[in-house]
Computed example of a mutant assay.
Amino acid sequence: MNATSSESVRCGWPTGNDTYLEYHDAEWGRPTTDEYRLFEKICLEGFQSGLSWLTILLKRPRFREVFADFDYRAVAEFGTDDVERLLDDAGIIRHRGKIEATINNAQRAVELAEVEGSLVDWVWEWAVTTPHRELDGAIPAKTERSAALAKDLKRRGWKFFGPTTAYAFMQSEGLSNDHETSCFAHDACAAERAAFLTGRTLRPAD
Rank of each mutant, 00 (worst) to 15 (best):
F184Q: 01
Y36Q: 15
A101S: 11
E100G: 01
L112E: 04
V9H: 03
K98A: 05
D152I: 01
S6T: 14
K59G: 09
K159G: 06
T33Y: 02
W53P: 07
R85M: 10
G157V: 13
D25H: 03
D18P: 04
H179C: 04
Q107D: 05
T129H: 00
W28M: 06
T102Q: 05
L202E: 06
A3L: 14
A195N: 00
F161W: 07
V75D: 08
R30M: 13
A74F: 04
F184D: 10
S52W: 03
P163Y: 11
C11M: 04
T33V: 15
D25P: 01
P14L: 02
F63S: 09
E35H: 10
V75G: 01
Y167C: 06
F160E: 11
S8C: 01
P31C: 06
L153Q: 02
D25K: 00
P61H: 09
V75L: 11
S5Q: 13
G137H: 02
Q48D: 11
K151Y: 04
F160Q: 11
R73T: 15
R62L: 07
E192G: 00
G157W: 03
G29H: 03
E45W: 01
S172I: 08
Y20S: 09
R156P: 02
E100A: 01
G12V: 13
F196H: 07
